[in-house]
Design a binder for these strands. Structure first.
Length: 691
RNA sequence: GCCGAAGUAGCUCAGCUGGUAGAGCAGCUGAUUCGUAAUCAGCAGGUCACGGGUUCGAGUCCCGUCUUCGGCUCCA
C-alpha cells in the first residue's frame, strides 16, 4: 500500500468536482460524528462518481439512516463553515491523534487509531496538515473547496463494507458512499443518467428481449441461452469463422474434460486450481478395487512392522503426526533424507523392503491407478497443445493457427458473479497460434489488426489496451518460475507494441501464469470496466508439453504460442453488445430480423404475407409472421417492444401493388416500397453487416 | 469467499403495527377486421425462494440455506 500512496503533488491535481466531493466526505464525517460521536474514520477520498468515507462504528448504518445523516450534513453546509488548513509538526499531529482529535469533533477518550496509523505511514519530510470545518477536524492533505456551502447538492447512495487498506487481515469498516455536485440541477441530471443506464442494463434487457435466463436448479453463473440469444451467438460465430478462415486459421474441436495429469503438465493445477471446478473422481472396477485395498492393507501392515524398526524415531507420535500431514512428494523426500543417513545394514534392509513391497505397489499404481480424476477445462490451451503434438510438425507448417469456440468452466467466487459479464460457463473465441520467434511480430500484429477490425464493425470507440506483466516477487506462486523468459518475452511484446504505435498502458502483476498478456478493456453502460478481449504470449506451456518442430537446420525447436480471443467470450461479449446497442441490434445481429404484419387475416393477404416470409427464410433471414387477430397498432407495439429490426406492414393496397410498407425499429414508418427492392436491401444489409 | 440489502403470478409491482394473497401486462376463450406504439369482455394463474421456529393465527416476527443485487482497486 505505502508504495502506492499518492504524492502531495498528485493530490494537488484534483479536479474541481473531486475537490468538492472530497469536501463532501468531510461533511459526511461531520454529520456521522454528530449522531455517533465515537465513530472512527479511516479514509474518505473522491471516487469516479462521488465519494465515500470508511468508518468503524458499533451501529450498523443502513440506508434508513441516510435521511438523518443527510439532515446533519445539510446543517453543516447551511452553516457555510470555512475549510481551514493548518500545517503542523509530525509530533503535534501524532499527539492530536492520540487524544482522539482527528476525524473528530473534539477530544475523545480513545485515540483516532486509523489516523494514527496513517500519520505513521507518511514519509519523513512530507508536510503534514489538518483541515477544520466548524467543529470537525481531520488529518488531510486537501485540497478542499473554500466553504462547506460550496457543496451545492449531495446525496448518500449506498453503504458497503471494505477492509482497512483493502487488506482482509485488517478490520472491516463500513463504507458510506455518496455523490455531490455544484448544484441540484447537476445532481438531478446524474440520477436521471443512472436511470437511463439502468434501462440498458444487459440483465434487464436480456430478460425483456428473451435472450437468456438463469435457473436456480441449473446453478449460479450458468446462463441458458434462449433462441433469441442463440441467434446472436450464431451470428458472432459466423463472423469469427469467416474472419479467421480469411486469416489462415484452421478450426478444431475438443472435449470439455481432461485427466488431471493434463493440467499438471499445463501448469493449471499449480497456478490456476482455485479457478477450476473440483475434480470428478472416476473409480476403477470393483474387482480391481478389492485387489487394491488388500494391497493397501498389506502395505500398511508393513509400515507398522518394518518402517519403525528402520526409523526408530517413528515411534514418537509427534514425528508420525508430522509425516502423516505430508504430501506423497514430501514423504519421499523425507525418506530419501533418512536413507542417506542410514547405516549399511539398515540400508540393505530398507532396499529389500522397497523391492519386495513398495516397488510392486508403485508399479501397480502406475499401471492402473485406483482412481482417475477429470477436470472441466477452464481454458482450451492444453487440449490445443495436444492437437499440435498429435502430428509431427515442421517449420514449414508454422505458423499453425488452431481456432475453436471452446466451452470452458471456471469456478468464479460466488460474490464475483455478475449477469453475463462474469459467469462460470463460457464459450471463448479462442485460438492458439504456434509460431517461430521470427514469426512472432507479424502474427502478433495480425491479431491486433483483427481486434481493430472487429471494434470498427461494432462501433466500439472507447477502449484501452492493457499490457500486463509479471511481478518478480510472485514467481513460482502466481507466475511460472522462469525470470529470464518473463523478461525476454515482455521485452519482445513491449517492442512490438511500441513499434506499431498502439496506445497501451502497462500494468504489473496481472499477467497470465504462463506469460504476459494484452487485454482490451471496455466500459459497460453501468460504468463497469470489463476485459472484453485478450491476447497472451505463452513461453511456458509449449515447453512443458514438449512441443517441437523440426527446423530447416534439422534441429528440434520449441514454438512460441500466442493465445488470443478478440471477441472474448460469448457471454461477456453479448452482455457488452446488449448494453452497447441498448438492445437495438443492427439487422445482421438482430435476433428477429424481420416481422411481417398483415392488416387483417383475409386468406389472400395471409398467403401473400407467407410468401414473403418464405422467401426471406429461404435466404436464411430470421423472419416471423404475426398472424394474430390483434389490431395493427397492437402488432406494431408488440414488434417494437421486442425491438424487431424491420417490420413489413402489408394490407390490401400493398398486396395489389406487389409492395410492402416498411417500418424500421427506431426509424418509424418509411412508407410503401416494391417488395423485391426491400428484400434485396435486407439481404445486402445482412451480408455487409451494415451498422 | 467476506460485509450489507433483497426475493410475492411468466413480467412489473401493491400488500400498514401478524388476522381469508391483490393489480396491470403477458396467457387462454370469445367477440372485434383494423393502415403504423397497446379494441373489449370473460376465464385461468400462487407451497408468498426453500427449510425450521415463535404464535390461537406468519407474506409480515426470529434462525438457517439458496439465489440475486451493491461493495470489497484507488485512499489523510
Amino acid at each position: 500500500m505505502a508504495d502506492e500512496r499518492k504524492s502531495l503533488e498528485q493530490r494537488a491535481q484534483m479536479t474541481d468536482i473531486e475537490r468538492l466531493r472530497h469536501s463532501a466526505a468531510h461533511v459526511l464525517a461531520t454529520a456521522i460524528l454528530k449522531i455517533w460521536p465515537d465513530a472512527q474514520f479511516a479514509a474518505g477520498p473522491p471516487v469516479e462518481n462521488g465519494f465515500y468515507y470508511d468508518v468503524e462504528l458499533g451501529h450498523r448504518i443502513s440506508p434508513e439512516d441516510f435521511e438523518k445523516i443527510e439532515a446533519e450534513m445539510k446543517k453543516e453546509t447551511k452553516a457555510n463553515h470555512v475549510f481551514e488548513r493548518v500545517v503542523l509538526p509530525r509530533d503535534d499531529a501524532l499527539s492530536m491523534a492520540q487524544r482522539g482529535l482527528l476525524g473528530a469533533l473534539g477530544e475523545r477518550s480513545s485515540p483516532s487509531k486509523f489516523k494514527l496509523d496513517i500519520i505513521q505511514n507518511i514519509p519523513e519530510g512530507e508536510e503534514i496538515s489538518i483541515y477544520r470545518n466548524g467543529e470537525f477536524t481531520d488529518l488531510c492533505a486537501g485540497p478542499h473547496v473554500m466553504r462547506t456551502g460550496n457543496i451545492g447538492a449531495f446525496k448518500l447512495t449506498h453503504v458497503a463494507s471494505a477492509y482497512y487498506k483493502g487488506d482482509e487481515k485488517n478490520p472491516q469498516l463500513q463504507r458510506i458512499y455518496g455523490t455531490a455536485f455544484k448544484n441540484k440541477t447537476q445532481l438531478d441530471e446524474y440520477f436521471a443518467m443512472l436511470e437511463e443506464a439502468k434501462k440498458r442494463d444487459h440483465r434487464k434487457l436480456g430478460k425483456e428481449l428473451e435472450l437468456f435466463t438463469f435457473d436456480d436448479q441449473v446453478g449460479p453463473g450458468l446462463p441458458l441461452w434462449l433462441p433469441r440469444g442463440t441467434a446472436i451467438i450464431e451470428e458472432l460465430e459466423k463472423l469469427a469463422k469467416e474472419t479467421e478462415f480469411a486469416a489462415g486459421y484452421v478450426r478444431v474441436r475438443t472435449p470439455n474434460l481432461a485427466r488431471e495429469s493434463l493440467y499438471k503438465t499445463s501448469g493449471h493445477l499449480p497456478y490456476y486450481a482455485d479457478s477450476m471446478f473440483p475434480p470428478m473422481v472416476v473409480r476403477k472396477n470393483e474387482q480391481f478395487r478389492v485387489f487394491w485395498e488388500n494391497w493397501e492393507k498389506k502395505q500398511n501392515q508393513l509400515h507398522e512392522e518394518t518402517v519403525p524398526n528402520l526409523f526408530p524415531d517413528l515411534k514418537d507420535p509427534d514425528v508420525r503426526a508430522k509425516i502423516s500431514g505430508m504430501s506423497p512428494d514430501e514423504t519421499n523426500r523425507w525418506l530419501e533424507a533418512r536413507i542417506v543417513n542410514m547405516g549399511q545394514e539398515a540400508t540393505n534392509a530398507f532396499n529389500k523392503m522397497a523391492v519386495d513391497n513398495f516397488i510392486p505397489t508403485l508399479m501397480m499404481a502406475q499401471v492402473a491407478p485406483v482412481e482417475d480424476r477429470f477436470y472441466l477445462k477452464a481454458m482450451n490451451c492444453p487440449h490445443h497443445h495436444k492437437l499440435y503434438a498429435a502430428i509431427p510438425r515442421s517449420y514449414r507448417d508454422l505458423p499453425l493457427r488452431l481456432a475453436e469456440y471452446g466451452t470452458c468452466h471456471r469456478y468464479e467466487q460466488s460474490g464475483e458473479l455478475f449477469g453475463l459479464m462474469r459467469v462460470r460457463s463460457l464459450q471463448m473465441n479462442d485460438a492458439h497460434i504456434y509460431c517461430t520467434e521470427d514469426q512472432f511480430e507479424s502474427e502478433f500484429l495480425a491479431v491486433n489488426e483483427m481486434y481493430l477490425k472487429y471494434f470498427k464493425l461494432f462501433g466500439i470507440e472507447k477502449y484501452v489496451m492493457r499490457f500486463s506483466t509479471h511481478d518478480p516477487a510472485k514467481l513460482g506462486q502466481k507466475f511460472v518460475d522462469n525470470s529470464q523468459l518473463w523478461l525476454k518475452t515482455e521485452d519482445m511484446v513491449r517492442g512490438v507494441l511500441q513499434r506499431s504505435g498502439i496506445n497501451y498502458v502497462e500494468v504489473p502483476n496481472e499477467a497470465a501464469f504462463y506469460g504476459p498478456k494484452i487485454d482490451v478493456q471496455v466500459w459497460s453502460a453501468i460504468g463497469r470496466e470489463f476485459t472484453i478481449a485478450t491476447n497472451q504470449v505463452d513461453f511456458a506451456q509449449p515447453k512443458s508439453f514438449g512441443l517441437v518442430y523440426k527446423d530447416s537446420d534439422n534441429t528440434e525447436k520449441t514454438p512460441l504460442c500466442i493465445h488470443r480471443a478478440p471477441l472474448g467470450t460469448h457471454e461477456r461479449f453479448i452482455g457488452f453488445l446488449i448494453e452497447h446497442y441498448a438492445g437495438n441490434f443492427p439487422l445482421w445481429l438482430a435476433p428477429e430480423q424481420v416481422r411481417i404484419l398483415p392488416i387483417g387475416d383475409e386468406p389472400a393477404l395471409l398467403d401473400y404475407a407467407r410468401a414473403i416470409q418464405n422467401e426471406l427464410r429461404s435466404y436464411q433471414v430470421r423472419a416471423e409472421l404475426d398472424a394474430s387477430s390483434d389490431h395493427m397498432k397492437t402488432k406494431i407495439a408488440n414488434a417494437e417492444q421486442m425491438k424487431v429490426h424491420t417490420m413489413l406492414v402489408i394490407g390490401n393496397r400493398d398486396m395489389e401493388a406487389n409492395a410492402v410498407s416498411l417500418r424500421v425499429h427506431g426509424k418509424g414508418n418509411l412508407g410503401a416500397k416494391p417488395r423485391d427492392d426491400v428484400i434485396a436491401d435486407i439481404l445486402a444489409a445482412i451480408k455487409e453487416r451494415r451498422a
